[in-house]
């Protein structure tokens, strides 16, 4: 569904106007507290902000710490959605790296 190759993978569905979004992001989520084999601290690299927008509203505004798992998974639910609607998911990490993608909620097969 992504318009470009993205770090964000989305599975979504909508039933009676209620959309369920499952989102998986490829990201190391390094806490900055871990040490490598030589005992040096591995620098922190984790997603700090993640948002999901749908028809002008930010339906989810998440702030994450390094203690969210590597390749974070998120599932959330919001109402007021229709088949074929587009959602936009964006993230920014502590080093300023970011990505975003637009995803269409697929029309349900009947």
């Amino acid at each position: 569904m992504a318009k470009k190759s993205s770090t964000i993978q989305v599975r979504s569905s909508v039933k009676k106007g209620v959309a369920t979004i499952k989102c998986l992001i490829s990201h190391p989520m390094e806490t900055g507290l871990r040490k490598d084999k030589k005992g040096n601290l591995i620098p922190a690299k984790f997603i700090q902000n993640l948002t999901c927008e749908h028809s002008g509203d930010t339906v989810l505004d998440a702030e994450l710490n390094g203690s969210v798992s590597t390749n974070p998974y998120l599932k959330f639910v919001f109402s007021g959605a229709n088949d074929g609607d587009t959602i936009k998911i964006s993230w920014v990490d502590n080093t300023g790296e970011k990505d975003s993608g637009e995803f269409e909620i697929p029309t349900r097969r009947r």
């Binding site: 710490n65 390094g66 969210v68």
Partner: peptide, 27 residues
């Protein structure tokens, strides 16, 4: 997570039409 070095793991702000249910993976 009470025993983690930094307890606060994630915070989610929800819009009025977002339902109060969140699933995620934590360390």
């Amino acid at each position: 997570v009470a025993e983690n070095a930094q307890p606060l793991t994630a915070s989610f702000d929800l819009s009025p039409r977002t339902e109060g249910v969140i699933t995620t993976n934590i360390k």
